[in-house]
């Protein structure tokens, strides 16, 4: 197992992403952050509070479960659902930023876009990820990336965050490790 990002690296990356979001959207008007469970949810909350700190406002943040939209349901036993929580203002006409920990094949984001489509019609959708490890299988790209991490297929990227794992770190391991 090889450490890739330390706790401080992660904090820096999220702070940078927060700034980029404000910059690219020319402020925080109509902004809504939706995390993809489980780690994406917590990353979205952190980014939201960081943006709030920078811009002195409260950014609506929610969570979007994509399980029912996955295209690989039949390859595994059924999974329990995680909650979907949409902020009170809804998503119609909003600038929605999806937040996830790792961007890989792109299928999760595809499912997230489908799930989003059922909840309303945002003005635009952007994507923020902590790690982009490549190997895309769909024409999807991230608007904000914490770190681009070239990997081999058989490698596994492990993201740990305080809220779930007790510490912040990113590492690469071989599949059998």
């Amino acid at each position: 197992m090889k450490a890739v990002l330390s706790s401080a690296d992660i904090t820096r990356a999220l702070t940078r992403i927060s700034h980029e979001i404000i910059e690219k959207n020319r402020g925080t008007a109509e902004l809504v952050l939706l995390g993809i469970p489980t780690r994406g949810t917590h990353l979205a909350e952190r980014i939201a509070s960081e943006i709030g700190r920078i811009d002195a406002g409260e950014i609506p943040v929610g969570t979007l479960d994509i399980t029912l939209h996955r295209d690989d349901l039949r390859s595994r036993p059924p999974r329990p659902l995680t909650p979907t929580r949409i902020p009170a203002g809804g998503i119609d006409g909003k600038r929605v930023v999806l937040v996830d920990d790792v961007l890989y094949s792109g299928r999760t984001i595809r499912a997230a876009l489908d799930a989003l489509g059922e909840l309303g019609r945002p003005a635009l959708v952007q994507l923020a990820v902590l790690i982009d490890r490549g190997h895309r299988e769909l024409p999807i790209r991230a608007d904000y990336v914490g770190k681009n991490l070239p990997t081999a297929h058989e490698e596994v990227v492990r993201v740990a965050i305080k809220e779930i794992d007790g510490e912040d770190s990113v590492s690469i391991a071989n599949a059998h490790e």
């Binding site: 029912l68 039949r74 036993p77 059924p78 999974r79």
Partner: peptide, 10 residues
């Protein structure tokens, strides 16, 4: 239906 049919059963 989801829990019985939504995934693979070995």
């Amino acid at each position: 239906l989801y829990l019985l049919l939504g995934g693979a059963h070995e």
